[in-house]
């Protein structure tokens, strides 16, 4: 059950997409996200969708694996859709008590749903093809200019690395504690909402305690190895741009050109 979360999970692979420099991938992701918000017509989605399909194919990540990440936001998407259908003014489609559905709302809802789904696919593609460590390295390198105005970029990146590193550990721990409490007759699956919320206490308290203990141990271990933060720190794996990155950036530029043309098409 906890294993179903694809968002923020890495899919091991050796494809061209995996090999791209994380900085390139982050920049492309940001560019795609911005472009998704700028699209105003249905045709505008077409180039992005094609680009994403091609990327998924290239990356070797199973299509279903990517789509599974959408399950987590199904409720959010549904609520957004419903709100748009009922709360947009325009030609009346049907009435349901005090609620009025409009054709304009329907079209806007569809638009929103596609947009949110694409946003998720774009971001999960980034995390699926980039290891958490590479991701934070990339972010750190991209944010380097901010050091000039005394932003602790390295410390932020380190905190992110640690947080990402401990997600699987804590999930494993949750699984173990859940099992231990079920062995004592705890029941997490039946009962009212309040009862189920209360049933989480025997899981959350041990989980928090062990998280604090781990944090403490990690801090001591880091100090023992004379960790000092940013100053004079070198990296074992240096980031390098290759011709692949140039190619990817070029492709994205071509994509935006297409998108510009597609936006102009009138239905």
């Amino acid at each position: 059950m906890l294993k179903d979360i694809t968002l923020g999970q890495y899919y091991k692979g050796d494809s061209a997409v995996h090999k791209l420099d994380p900085r390139t991938k982050i920049l492309i992701t940001i560019a795609l996200l911005v472009s998704l918000f700028m699209i105003k017509s249905w045709w505008g989605f077409l180039p992005v969708v094609l680009f994403l399909l091609a990327t998924i194919f290239l990356s070797g990540v199973p299509f279903l694996f990517v789509v599974k990440g959408l399950k987590a936001i199904a409720v959010l998407v549904m609520i957004t859709g419903l709100f748009n259908v009922f709360l947009t003014d325009g030609t009346v489609w049907f009435k349901f008590y005090f609620l009025t559905a409009t054709y304009e709302g329907l079209s806007l809802a569809g638009f929103m749903v596609v947009r949110i789904c694409l946003l998720i696919v774009v971001t999960s593609l980034l995390t699926l093809t980039t290891t958490p460590i590479m991701l934070t390295d990339g972010i750190e390198s991209l944010l380097k200019p901010l050091k000039k105005i005394k932003v602790p970029v390295h410390e932020f990146a380190m905190m992110m690395t640690i947080a990402l590193r401990f997600i699987p550990t804590i999930m494993e721990e949750t699984d173990k504690i859940m099992k231990a409490q079920s062995a004592r007759g705890a029941d997490f699956e039946t009962g009212s909402l309040l009862k189920r919320a209360k049933a989480l206490i025997p899981i959350l308290i041990p989980l928090f305690i062990s998280a604090f203990r781990r944090a403490d141990e990690l801090a001591v271990a880091m100090e023992c190895r004379c960790y000092h933060g940013d100053t004079n720190r070198t990296k074992m794996k240096q980031l390098h741009y290759t011709w692949l990155d140039c190619l990817a950036l070029l492709l994205v530029l071509v994509l935006f050109a297409f998108q510009f043309i597609a936006e102009g098409i009138k239905i």
């Binding site: 173990k176 231990a180 079920s182 062995a183 007759g185 029941d187 308290i205 041990p206 062990s210």
Partner: peptide
Amino acid sequence: MKEVRRKVGLVFQYPEYQLF
């Protein structure tokens, strides 16, 4: 299953981490 879990009491490794 609940009765099975009562009849067969299972103590995990490092059980002190389940105290809450």
